[in-house]
Amino acid sequence: MSNTTSRLVIATPPFAKRSVNTPMIMRHVIYALIPTVIAAVIYFGISALLLIVICTATCMLAEWLSTGRGPLFLSPVADGSAALTGILLALTLPPGLPLWMAVLGSLVAVFFGKLLFGGLGQNVFNPSLTGRAFLQASFPVALTTWAPPMGLREFLVLRGDSFALPFTRPVFDGLTAATPLAKMKFEGQATDWISMFYGGIPGSLGETSALLLVLGGVYLAWRGFLNWRVPVGIFLSVAIFASALHYSDPSRFPDALHHLLAGGLVLGAVFMATDPVSSPLTPVGSWIFAAGIGLLVVLIRQFGGLPEGVMYAILLMNAATPLIDRLTQPGIYGATKPVKEASKS
């Protein structure tokens, strides 16, 4: 055998590698959302389908345009994070939202929610919620006009002025309904929890069925792609704070079950707050983060001007994440005293 063989390469260890990679995680999160997407299309027909397609396509296009426009499979678009941002954004929107607004929201989600910070992994806020917050602030009426869910037979019925021309005032033709949270807040009327759990209530695309969202979350947690502490912590914290209020004055405050199932809580807790980029790194940090979201959700819903508070609660805790990370730096093995200091960067 000769001394050197030219086919030997010199790389660096480790030479063993777990097979999970980032695009695969993104893909599985998308798979976990498929049941919810299908339910949304069944309940809200073609309007929902259009919103999802438009948001996803816009997000992917925006990412591609702004990151070099190379061949698709080499560009960051291939990691799936832009597609996921689009799907998640669509799921937070009301079914009848004019599509041009959805396009605008998607652009904001990708450019301001992500690329402005430096791309995937650098953003402080959840990109989908950044887009959603922008739309909420710009078009408060359109974002709170809810169409009632219908069946597949009405698939082709538009649930709002989907094709409104940009910057014209959308026309709503009376096909609107109140969400369970709005009903509760403004009319003091509760929605029965069975329908909130199984689905078929007015709301954004992704909030109609808690069951399907939880199933998706359980799948991801089982595969190890989701930090289960975040949704569990949020549910616990909402339950605790909501119950505390409820028992102090049952006539004024709905019970915990209502808070848990209504609105975007499950969608937010399972799919938005768990975005690893904008949530804390350590288990302790995750619990603090989740507890904060739960508390904020209940406070905003009960004492704020809006019926819904999940989005702002998550965005606020996203902003607190760097601080939480700093305070919960792991104490290293063999440290003589707990290690608190963090880098100055």
Binding site: P276, V277, L281, Q329, P330, I332, G334
Partner: peptide, 24 residues
């Protein structure tokens, strides 16, 4: 293997036997 940005998934923190923060 193509390198992607750190998505702060914390898998490295959960793996490190001396409890460092490899992500950071």
């Amino acid at each position: 293997r193509q390198e992607y940005p750190c998505i702060r998934c914390s898998a490295c923190l959960d793996a490190c036997p001396v409890y460092l923060n490899p992500s950071s």
